[in-house]
Design a protein around this nucleic acid. Sequence first.
RNA 1: CGGGGAGUAGCGCAGCCUGGUUAGCGCGCCUGCCUUGGGAGCAGGAGGUCGUCGGUUCAAAUCCGAUCUCCCCGACCA
Length: 483
Amino acid sequence: MKREERLVTQITPKSEDFSRWYVDVIRRAELADYAPMKGMMVIRPYGYAIWENIQAHLDRRIKATGHVNAYFPLFIPESFLRKEMDHLKGFAPEVAWVTHGGQEELEERLAVRPTSEAIIGAMYAKWIQSWRDLPVLINQWANVVRWEKVTRPFLRTTEFLWQEGHTAHETEEEAREETLKILRLYQEFIETELAIPVIAGKKTSKEKFAGALETYSVEALMSDGRALQMGTSHHLGQHFSRVFNIRFEDRNQNLQYVWQTSWGVSTRLIGAVIMSHGDDSGLKLPPRIAPIQVIIVPISIGNWKEKVLPVALDLEKKLAAAGIRVKLDAREEYTPGWKFAEYELRGVPLRVEVGPRDIKENQVILVRRDNGEKLATSQDNLVERIIDCLEAIQKNLFTLALNFQKENTHDVDSYEDFKKIIEERRGFIRAWWCGEVSCEEAIKEETSATIRVIPLEKIREGEGCCLYCKKKATDYVYFARAY
RNA sequence: CGGGGAGUAGCGCAGCCUGGUUAGCGCGCCUGCCUUGGGAGCAGGAGGUCGUCGGUUCAAAUCCGAUCUCCCCGACCA
């Protein structure tokens, strides 16, 4: 879109400067604002409403699979973090420490949780004695702090909101099943509610979580061609149960350590929604998570208050009764054109225009944010038509994102092609890999692309040789430059 | 944490090099009139410790030092 043709100004065009566009959208749509401390942001009401909708959809799924919510402390004693050395080493550089309580210096420093495995492990040790106590399936919605060096609103902030599930099981098999069940749950949730297609797979040992046996993740491709990790699910094995002494007496009266998992998604998902669907005019929110699904704009001409407003009010009432998140903007201080642009910027999926002309025709104008289509629609059965339209928008956003992902996924056999694509087009690149960390690191060093996942689905038959070292390959994997 | 750029009204910027009346402009905001089918028009008005701290000077937005924050590109991460 040419600059002068754009309907919404005041944000940098996406094609001109993606990073700036991203930040402009966040600020203009009032999703978040910078706080006066480095790397911290305020999630404003409109942004928080999106998070609440995300929470509602995900929480329902988490509970439907037998998990319950609880809340653990914000602080973790240093000695607890030190118990699992890989875990400590992984997080040490980014932990914020509390050293004083009031005027008193603490005998032992307290970490502001970067994640809660340690404190939850300590509690599980107290709660679990018998196989009858298992499995323990607990989730918590919380904030965590990681002192990152480089931050970006929603994608990487010093403090962020997330959910973290922590489970304990009798057998390794059960824990692995849980890990994969959650990974699939995340995939279904993200694709259904956020309309973002993801690749589910396993992380390489280099990329796995500090302290885990195996890490799985769902990865999405953003519209600038970079990958974003959208959720992770870890099979922790017995690493934490051994150091926190989480033991139980099994069915054969043997004392055993539990098998654990942990998994999470964060407010980063909001960043993914912005980057996956947005355009030069601003946000495009999937209806399922949009704080406002339908905006009604009355065309305020002549005696509109007598003729148009009652129809608009009636429609608002009916839509609200049908469970639609609807808003009627009848303010006289702003022109209809101004409102059109404003709600487009804010990503409202569907706009209903009602004017004197429409009243005469017994119709309204529906305008879709996903494709800009304007549809003159009869007022008969309008609520049903709107519900169908929202469903169509949700589906279309997913389809558009899926097409983009497909168009930007490249299969390569030669390292030369690999480098060329990474430089010129980015996107996902699929290639054979030998399983060696050395090749993974060399490729990262030379191209800054990393292995995002070893996909769960087999995507290529036969055998091949490693993209880098040309030795026999073990896996056909996804590479990308990532956030 | 390394390299680069930037902080002047809510937002976007000019002024700084070459120090000197009352620090400007566009958008936004307030009041009034008039308008309203894609961010209307006219008139009047409010809003600033020039990021912060310190130094040089008769005089600092401007020169010097320190510090905080943001953006971009790398190394690290949800």
